[in-house]
Every structure is written in structure tokens, then in C-alpha cells.
Design a protein around this nucleic acid. Sequence first.
DNA 1: ATGAAAGCGCTAACAT
DNA 2: ATGTTAGCGCTTTCAT
Lengths: 345, 345
Amino acid sequence: MRHRPEERRRPTMKDVAALAGVSMKTVSRVINDEPMVSPDVATRVMSAVGQLNYQPDQRAGSLRRAGRKSETIGLVVSSVANPFAAAINRAVENTARARDIAVFASSIDDDPEREQPTVEALLRRRVDGLILTTVRKSQSYLLSEQAFGTPIVFVDREPAGVEADAVMSDHARGASTAARHLLDHGHTRIAYLGDLSTIQSARERRRGFLKELGVRGVPTADCPIVMDLHDAAAAERVTLQLLTGPEPPTAIFSSQNLLTVGAIRALRSLAAHDSIALVGFDDLPLADLLEPGVTVIAQDPHRIGTLAANLLFARLDGNTEEPRNYIVETALIARGSGEILPRDR
Amino acid sequence: MRHRPEERRRPTMKDVAALAGVSMKTVSRVINDEPMVSPDVATRVMSAVGQLNYQPDQRAGSLRRAGRKSETIGLVVSSVANPFAAAINRAVENTARARDIAVFASSIDDDPEREQPTVEALLRRRVDGLILTTVRKSQSYLLSEQAFGTPIVFVDREPAGVEADAVMSDHARGASTAARHLLDHGHTRIAYLGDLSTIQSARERRRGFLKELGVRGVPTADCPIVMDLHDAAAAERVTLQLLTGPEPPTAIFSSQNLLTVGAIRALRSLAAHDSIALVGFDDLPLADLLEPGVTVIAQDPHRIGTLAANLLFARLDGNTEEPRNYIVETALIARGSGEILPRDR
DNA sequence: ATGAAAGCGCTAACAT
DNA sequence: ATGTTAGCGCTTTCAT
């Protein structure tokens, strides 16, 4: 037996008008809560709307409406499967919902090849604004779109080739804080695990880390820097190698949440989690329940997302201030793993 | 100084046609890769497109185009901030991307009041299909939309008042398995932590749990069932109460991931994590790294999301089979916490 | 191979 | 307070 619910044609405003015995414009007035409709006509229209299960077509409406706004924004993140991006996504959505704005969310897995096609797919759908986590070397392909009046806010990373608002953690500062924390606990052989060097924030974090080493006069030759690690498995592999190699580090700074997970797994498998210090950039859901608790430089993705969305809506509301970078503070949360002292082995 | 990038009018297909010296229809043909355009005309059009930075307006296109499809689907989940929903979201997105379909994602926090307005906001935007995690008692408000030809697939929970495909874990079976596992380890005083009883899957899990107790002849009076816990804090509070009260349970079954987190926190604060058994429904990111590892009934949200999206697209492609429920198997992952034996206290 | 006219579902601008 | 006409940016249909 086949399933084909008897298909009815979707009613249009014209159908509603006919049933209510009024003109389309009157229906339009009722639907949009415009004044100048007598109460009885309004009820007649609403009853027709109910009978037909009419839902206005927002595409058609927005096409003609002044401003041509689609009441829709586009959000591009690395991956909603990552709790950091998920929290940003959630915050943006919350802010948008208050204005009846729908959100297109797209994950691009930090793949530069996917950035522009993804953004263009959103632009063809005429989103009113964009919130973007970018990976390409330059975002100058957005210049024309900006000229057409579409506001853009960057999150987590600074753009290149465009002037626009950007909201992010102070990556370099956070990484410096992590380095200082480990140095203060006596470590001088600190391994650095870094994300893809195509990612601006990954480069910033490395910079902050190296800067702090410099300030303290710690020879960077003793601190292996491994970049371009993009998942837990890669971080785990590298950590194992470093710890089982000659002159192993006494501390690890994993500069991204998934890398921290990989580092933890490696430490566990070597039973070194109580002897090798670990600090991670970005918090993890159960980090406080592990033993030892994982010391992290916590970001505030909820604040980042909320701020980004509010900035975008302010631009849509006509704000013409100079675009600038907004920094959301990070916080060192000491839970144990980062306070382990170096031991001779 | 004020920031107002000189606003240019967004070019339309008409502008492209004028610049290329052809008719609009010819531009349309080139844009849509229709045959019957001479190569030189095509290049002239493409060059005009490039010069003007023209992007076709998909809203306008879809309005007239046969089928009136918006190349867009709507996804409603509990919250993208929950890893289970995030994984579903990601899987849906991946499947949609392969077809150039954009995804509107909305979190409704399992609030029945928000379900219908959220869905209707998507329908006004004329999504081609819906993937829904619902909470209302009935989804019959979707009947008319179904009659207009919009396919709907339910995820994680079974709908009421509508016939449609649904993809979910076997909640009752998973809960039975958890109960059996604890019973097999000698527990007869098992506390049950449940999500909101408005949620169909939460009721199913409780049913599965109780059923297994019945099969084994365990008096349910010894097994406190606490429903309507919706976050970690609530679960933590209740767990503390149960464990510090008279005749405390020797095991806990927390039937949702956030509740499991709350239960773990409570066990930790009482230093009871090595003496009270714990099984959770749905896996947690670092569950294997805790001590003891958390035994869970793991779901497969990636498979659920992928299957749901594929079903939706099959319907859009004309599949008219009887709608049915698709079950994605759960798996018991024993990691330690669920294998703790009861002790007299 | 190309174009002109009509129309998708709606709202703006102007009647009445 | 209500209706009429034109037109949003595009695709369809039908010419040529």
C-alpha cells in the first residue's frame, strides 16, 4: 500500500481574499497588523485564514517589501559538533529568535575550500547578515556584498581584506597566560600542540605562547611546537611521540579543545597524567571531573555569540560606527593538571 | 568618523542582461546551465556576472520555478548545545550539503510552547521539508502542511496525531538493557532519574526500565523513580537527596546525558563514585576518561541524523512508501561505573 | 539560439 | 476603510 496523502494546493492570499470576500490588500493588512481595517472584516479574514490553514509566504513578501529583508541570517562555524561552536550557535539563535530571525547554520570544518561556496550559498538566499568563522587567507571576496549593504560580523577569528566587526577571545593573551602558569610552576620544557596554521587564531595562540617564553628567556629549542593538528587522534599520536622520545617535555599546552582531549588520552595511556602538567585552551564539558582536573584557559562562547549577534542586529538597525574588534576575556581555571610540578625522570 | 561603505544597488539579472547585451532569459539560461546558448554569448554573460558581482536571488527564482522549492529544510532539536542534538544537526547538514540544501536549525529546549511557533516560522519561509524533535502532546497541527506536500521526518521521538517517518533509538529496549545490567550485578535498589515526562522518549525509557524490573520480579517500591529532571543541577540535587536519605539506592540509572553529568557530580561530592553503580542513557564525550569510566547505553546520533535526512530527501524525490519508524540500535558500553557491586552500608 | 510576455505570491503606491 | 495597479527578481511559456 502506497502513502500519498491527498495533495491539496497550498492556499495563497488570493484564496483567503476570495473566501473572505475582500481584496488581497485587505488580507495583507490583516496579516501584517496594519491599522485601518474594521474589526468585523478582520475577523472574517482571520476565519478564512484558519479554514484554509493559510500561512503567508515570506519569500514572496520579502521580495516586494521595502528593504527586501529576508528575516534570515547566515552563520558559518567550524563545526556544530564542537562544543565551542555549538555554544556560539546557540547564543546567536537565542538572540535572533527574539527578533523572529531564522538562522542558517553551516559547518565548514575549517576547510578553506568550503568557505566561499558556503557563504555564497547563503548570499543567494539573501540572508540579511552574516556571522562568520573564516579560514581563507582573505575575505576580500565579501567586499562587494558589503557594498550592497549586508552587514558581516566575524567570530573567533580576525578577517583579512575586509573591514568589519569581529568578536573573539584574546588568543595571544590567553596562550601567554597558559605559558606563564606553566613557567611559574617550574616548567621549562613545554610542548605546544597547535591547530592548523591556516587558522588565524591558531597562529595567534602560538604567538602568545612564544612571546611569553621569550619574556622569560626560556630557550624555545626546549619547547617542541607541533602545529597543524586538527583532531584528538592527531594530538594523541604526537603527544605519545613527544613523551616517549628523547628529552621529553614536562608539560603540555594543548591550544584547542579537541587537542586537549587527545593529549589527555595519551597521558592516560602512558600513566603520566599525574606527572606531566597539562593546560588546555578552551574548556571541556567534564574537565573538572577528570583526575586530575584539567586546567584550562576558558573562553566564553556564549558571550561571543551573543555579542556578535547583537552587533549584527545593531548594524541592521543602522549603526554606522567604525567597525572594530571586540575582545571577550578568557579565564585561567586551575583544576590540578596545570599545577603539576616538573620531576626529573 | 563614520563607517558607511558607499552603498551600491545590488545588481539584478536585468542589469547583467543589459551589460551583456542580451535578454534576461538568456542570462537565466546561462546561470542555470540550460542548453541552447552559444558559447560566445555564454562567456559574455559570465563576464558581466563577474563584473557586477551578480548573485542570483534564489527567493525570486524559487517563487516562479516549477515545484516552488526553496532548496531549504528546517531542523528543530532540543538544543544544539547538547552533544546529542549537535551530532544530529551535523549529520543532517552533511547530507543536505551534498544536495545544496541549506538548513535552518532551531533549538526549542523541549518547551511545548515553542514547538508550533518555531515550526510555523519555518513554514512561512517555505522550507521544502522538516526534521523535528517534538514535545507537544500532538503534532496534528502539521496535518494540513503534510497535505500541501511538505515531507516531515521525526527524530528521537515518535509523533502523535500525524503519520510520518520517525527515526530514533529503541528507548525502552535501551533502558531495559541498562536495568538488566544493573540487576545482573546484584542491584535491587536502583534509582531512576528521568527527563520531563512530556517527552515521549523519556516516558519510553521509564517504561523499559520498569518492564525489566517486572520481568525480574524486583519490587518497584525499592526503586525510586524521579521524573521531570531537565538539567544537570536538578539531577545532582535529587541524587544527593536519594543517597543521603533512608535506604539509599545502590545503583543509579540516569536516563539522559545531562542527568548523568549531575549524577556523577553528586556521587563525587559524596565520594560515592566507587561504591554506587551508575549507568547513563546516551554517551558523554569524556565518559571513558573519568574514574571509574561511565557505563552508558550509547545512542548513534550521527546515524539517526543521516538516516532522517536521507528519508526526507527520498520523500522529496517522490518516495510514497508507507511511513514507518526506523530504529537505530543502542549499545551498552561497560566502562566500570555500571559494574560496581552493591555493598551493605 | 534567442527573446517577449505573462505570472509566481506578495506589498507599495496610489486611488476611491 | 477598502480596492486597484504596478512591480519585486526571477522562470515559464510560447514565439521567432
